[in-house]
Amino acid sequence: MDGTMKTAVFTGPKKVELRQCPIPQVGKEDVLVKIDACAICTWEQRVYTGVKKVEFPFIGGHEMVGRIVEMGSRVDKRQWKVGERVAVGVMLACQNCYFCKTGNTQSCEYFDHSKHLEGLPEKGMGGFSEYLLVPSENLFKYDKISPEEATITEPLSCVLHSVETANVQFGDTVLVIGCGIMGLLHVLLSVRKGAVVVASDVNGERLKLAKELGAAYTVNPSEENLRDRVKEISGGIGAQVVFDTTPIAAVAEDAIKCAGQMGKVVLYSSFYPDTPVKFSPDWLHKGAVQILGTANSNERDFVRATRMLSEGVVNVKPFVSEVYEFEDIQSALESAIKGDKFRVVLKM
């Protein structure tokens, strides 16, 4: 395929440029994907505002979906066809370290956000481009939903990994702290795991949505003591699982206090700033409490996320807050960083 494409390049904090560059040439083992839509994750928002330090110039975008437009001669034609709609998994794992080789690409030792992907003019994750070369192992089929909804595949896959890390059981009391998109996806999946979900946020509108999505209880911690309320709801036991989806270290300290004996606390978010927190090691020891971290997702998570979205197991329409044309990426980024939306999506 000949011609040029547009790529959005971060050149510095609050600076992004649309540049023309050649459409990548397809090698024997390559799949060329025409990107249909890409959501703006909090990660890219932090790059844009300068909170997340990267070396500029940098191409963002990792919550992306598109259509196969060309394939190399060695791509398995039994599995893939031109025209198929696909979610694109992040291509940042090395595929060779111990963790990758044991099926845990989400924990790759050399996970590199600044990898220089083949066919792109600058380093970065590549979703803010009209075309992208993708190895077939990083493609996941979807159908029956819009590209804008399908951009939620990557966030959903990460939350799938989180909920399975916690091993949520039927009847568990699950506390979800923070009702942004990631928190609400934890609500959705925990409800489907048969848990009694308690959602906590200071935003009343988001608590209302959490209730609509299946949360049994909602708590505004600015109005009532969260730990006391969780104890009351659980009959004095405390939560079996606590998901902290906020980036605030002090909230992590509060989250730990809400866990009951043999409970699990999952720290889902990145923390900005990364400030140490205090907890009682003796309480942790005697209560057999587990503090767990989770980040990213792997191929298994992506497969299941696309299946769940395609078959309507989860409805992510409420999370597509705004859609912008690719040419308006600066306006889209400015809207996203206001913090009052779930996902702002770029339509290519």
Rank of each mutant, 00 (worst) to 15 (best):
G3Y: 04
G3V: 02
M5Q: 09
K15R: 11
L18C: 05
V26K: 03
G27R: 11
V31Q: 00
A39C: 05
T42M: 15
E44D: 12
Q45I: 13
T49D: 07
G50T: 01
V51R: 10
G61I: 09
M64Q: 14
V65C: 06
R67F: 11
M71N: 00
W80I: 04
G83Y: 06
E84D: 11
E84Q: 15
V86M: 00
V88M: 03
V90D: 14
V90I: 15
M91K: 12
C94W: 04
Y98F: 15
G103T: 05
G103I: 07
G103R: 02
C108L: 08
E109I: 12
E109S: 11
Y110D: 11
P121R: 02
G126M: 06
G126N: 01
E130Y: 03
E130Q: 10
V134M: 08
K141C: 05
S146M: 02
E148G: 05
T151H: 00
T153W: 10
L156E: 08
C158G: 02
C158D: 03
L160R: 03
E164I: 10
T165Q: 13
D172H: 05
D172M: 02
V174P: 01
L175H: 06
G180L: 05
V187C: 08
S190L: 00
V196R: 11
V198G: 08
D201I: 00
E212Q: 13
G214F: 05
G214P: 01
T218D: 11
V219E: 03
S222H: 08
R229Q: 12
V230Q: 07
G235P: 03
G235A: 06
G236W: 09
F243S: 08
I248H: 15
V251R: 12
V251M: 13
D254C: 12
D254A: 14
A255T: 08
A255H: 01
M262P: 00
G263S: 07
K264A: 03
V265Q: 02
Y272C: 10
D274C: 14
P276A: 02
L284A: 13
G287E: 12
Q290V: 07
L292I: 04
T294I: 05
A295C: 09
N298Y: 11
V303I: 12
R304V: 12
R304D: 07
A305I: 05
S310V: 00
V316Y: 11
P318C: 12
P318S: 12
S321Y: 01
V323P: 06
E325R: 14
A336R: 00
A336N: 07
R343E: 12
